[in-house]
């Protein structure tokens, strides 16, 4: 049975207007958004790990600064997205618990290891590039806080993507060793990046309802094709090869055809059997466990003094 508030929800959707946290919404819509925004937030913070792996080894101070700023941005995106999810009535603590216990997922791409410095560039170019293609339509998603978070995040992601591309470009034009490193990284990250768009349309379980709710505006395969079409000319400029013998321009469709994606690998990584699934979650839960006494100390201080040290300090100067 349709209630009055749900018909208002439907009317807002039909008028392409934003649903705000104070608006009533179907429980399934709320649950879908919580799942999606949380997964996105989790991806930001787990995604800090593969790149964070190279923070202490960045080969120039300029690259070190760029990478530090990027990893910091990812933590910031995580904060921002958890806050967007909180507008739907869940807490960050609950969501982190769902991540730590495997009840909620993060993007499978981060279960691959970063084996050389060139992986940092390849992630910037391909992984951030794929994320942008996925996320730009979300800036028009029906839920206001998520759409607005996406505007800011997409701006920063495109900055990261350009920096990754530029780093890879430098390697590709560098010494023989650097060039080999760059090609190897692209060889390893290309296919997992294509998997970031999710299963083929024929088998995607969440797509149709999300489309009706205007959370999702394009199908997985449409976005994947858009990404391939963007990357092929960029790879040519880099002078690097994409590891797909079937990749070729199709005059009829006006798009690049590409080879068969290994969906068995995708499913294995999604189900927990990727190269780094265990270590990513172990690192995250270890940080959380080891930080418990610190969070407890902050809570105890606040309980004793009724305020944070910063507020207390300000008060002190008035005396």
């Amino acid at each position: 049975m349709t209630t009055i508030s749900e018909s208002r929800f439907d009317a807002l959707l039909a008028a392409d207007e934003r649903i705000e946290p104070r608006d009533e919404m179907p429980e399934a819509y709320r649950a879908t958004l919580i799942r999606q925004i949380a997964q996105h937030a989790h991806s930001e913070i787990i995604g800090m790990q593969p790149e964070g792996n190279w923070l202490t080894r960045a080969p120039s101070l300029r690259r070190k600064a760029i990478l530090l700023a990027k990893v910091q941005d990812e933590a910031g995106h995580g904060l921002y997205l958890y806050a967007a999810a909180e507008t739907l009535g869940v807490s960050r603590t609950e969501l982190l618990d769902a991540l730590h216990t495997g009840r909620q997922r993060y993007s499978s791409i981060f279960n691959y290891p970063t084996l050389t410095w060139a992986d940092v560039g390849a992630i910037g170019w391909l992984v951030d590039g794929a994320a942008i293609v996925n996320q730009i339509p979300l800036t028009r998603c029906s839920f206001g806080p998520y759409a607005r978070a996406m505007v800011r995040i997409c701006q920063e992601e495109s900055f990261h993507q350009r920096q990754g591309y530029e780093s890879l470009h430098t390697l590709a034009r560098g010494t023989e060793g650097q060039r080999a490193m760059a090609q190897d990284a692209v060889d390893r990250w290309w296919w997992p990046s294509l998997m970031m768009f999710g299963p083929p349309d024929a088998t995607s379980t969440h797509s149709s309802r999300s489309t009706e709710w205007k959370i999702k505006r394009h199908s997985n395969d449409e976005l994947r094709q858009r990404f391939v079409d963007l990357c092929v000319p960029q790879a040519e400029i880099l002078g690097l090869t994409l590891p797909d013998a079937d990749l070729r321009w199709n005059e009829q469709t006006g798009h690049y055809d590409y080879g068969e994606i290994d969906w068995a690998e995708f499913k294995a990584v999604l189900d927990g059997d990727g190269p780094c699934n265990r270590q990513r979650i172990e690192r995250r839960t270890q940080a959380h466990r080891d930080g418990q006494w610190v969070r407890d100390a902050a809570a105890a201080y606040q309980a004793k003094h009724g305020q944070t040290p910063a507020a207390r300090g300000t008060e002190g100067t008035d005396r």
Binding site: I45, M48, Q49, G52, L55, T56, K64, A65, L68, A69, V71, Q72, A75, G76, G78, L79, Y82, R92, R283, R284, Q286, A287, D290, G291, Q292, V294, R295
Partner: peptide, 21 residues
Amino acid sequence: SEWLTYAPDLEEEVALANIAL
């Protein structure tokens, strides 16, 4: 920078990265 991905909370990840930067 060695603290990143291991800080006690997300706010501390951001703050420590910022100071490192």
